[in-house]
Design a protein around this nucleic acid. Structure first.
Lengths: 249, 249
DNA sequence: GTTAATTGTGCAAGATAATTCATATTCAAT
DNA sequence: ATTGAATATGAATTATCTTGCACAATTAAC
């Protein structure tokens, strides 16, 4: 393994995972940690990565101001939200799952949009109360405290009585082979239900969830109409998805 | 987990929840509280958060959100909440209406209490998610934005299927002649329903609502078991209430 | 072909950074 | 004032980093 090969590997990994650890790389690339550190120093000197104690992170994009930094993790989610919000039209009935990406989306819905939104997430509902005209229907049930969403049979049965034009779904993991998957059993059921009552399913997915597979299946890939990510929709990574008929945004 | 990752996690969480506790973060991120405190100090030094005893808060941005929305008569409501909280026992099933007094009450429920609480108020539900053991059932329906509560037939029919030991009710107005009254038609119906499914009804009432009468009747005075106010329960103002069998706290 | 510089790598020792732990102090709530 | 919780501090520990050096492989020069 040549030095440059390692460098490319490191850069690839850092783009994909948003971080690398010296210890991991040492094992993966089968060289000592010293060598990895030297690699990281090289790349850092070239301004390609940012070296930190224990590994390295990508260079921060944009102006490193106060607000920018504090929204760092939300940056990708905001990109996704901005793409997704264009799908919302007045008059639609929409279901939103309880992800932080959806929360970002809820924040930027233009005030001239007039639609009905069903959700089972307290933060999202609360955010939507700031919107002047959207009709919000909260889906009741037992509250799951950490995620601040309702869960359980009540939720499933409430959703199954609906019919929605659009469904915005945060993703635990998605790939062409296993489709959409979820780490949580209850949530996977709720999402199944959401999909079955929605005309179009829009999956919101940060790149780190792309090509991941979680424990429970939500839906095969062909049930997903549109996939919204924070990467360029023309990227070749999406070829498989396009073949299965998934629109990329 | 790199140090910066923790920092981003903390910033994300603080944006989402409007506060973080050192103890929680320590468990979530699997490091000691010392480390969390040092992280908080770092972030605070960068001006990204405001460190306080026990955790940290976001930098004040001027836009007050649900949590810090100015509450009128906060002092009185706290007094009432402190009296009312003594009525809560482990094992009970409780319904809470959506008043700011109830919100204060929700904040001070001792953490060793273990009960089930039904509510249709977003702020109260959100507040209760901080409690370690209470089971929260949110009553879904159409959201009334200004009050951030659900309303409508869904709410009424959900409530009518319950059975509760206790019911904490904010009051629009109360007096011995007209009983409990409400300015809002929809809310008056919901409250009627709450009363009909509860064994005991506790009315929480600041003194300015005492002896007021609003447009719609909720219940005659004898339906109220306990009246909690911010004035001395032995005050002669309560004589009429006592005659009707209302306990004063 | 031999030699000398150059480069890449691993190893070891000391330096630095991050973390935990024990302890004393401060804080918040009664 | 008293109590219990949260915090700051410094020592001890662990992890990571830097540095210098040895060695091998590669390149360049003669």
């Amino acid at each position: 393994m040549l030095k440059e090969e390692r460098h490319y590997h490191i850069l690839d990994k850092i783009i994909l995972n948003r971080k690398v650890l010296s210890a991991d790389l040492s094992i993966e690339l089968n060289v000592s940690e010293d060598t990895i550190r030297r690699d990281l120093n090289d790349l850092s000197a070239k301004g390609l990565i940012r070296k930190v104690h224990g590994g390295a992170l990508p260079i921060e994009t944009g102006t490193p101001s106060y607000g920018e930094r504090s929204t760092y993790n939300l940056e990708e989610k905001n990109i996704i939200a901005k793409k997704a919000v264009r799908l919302i039209k007045s008059g639609q009935v929409i279901i939103m799952s309880g992800s932080t990406t959806n929360l970002q989306l809820a924040k930027i819905i233009p005030s001239d949009i007039n639609c009905t939104i069903y959700t089972y997430s307290l933060p999202i509902a609360l955010q939507l109360t700031e919107h002047p005209s959207i009709e919000i229907i909260f889906i009741g049930g037992k509250l799951h405290k950490p995620a601040q969403v309702t869960v359980g049979l009540d939720v499933v049965s409430s959703i199954s009585e609906l019919r929605a034009d659009l469904c915005f779904m945060g993703t635990g993991g998605i790939n062409t082979l296993n489709g959409m998957t979820e780490p949580d059993w209850e949530v996977s059921h709720i999402k199944k239900c959401m999909i079955s009552v929605s005309d179009r399913v829009v999956a919101l997915c940060t790149q780190n969830k792309l090509n991941e597979t979680k424990r429970y299946t939500v839906a095969p890939i062909h049930k997903i109409d549109t996939l919204v990510t924070d990467i360029d929709p023309n990227d070749s990574i999406f070829n498989d998805f396009r073949e299965k008929g998934v629109k990329i945004l």
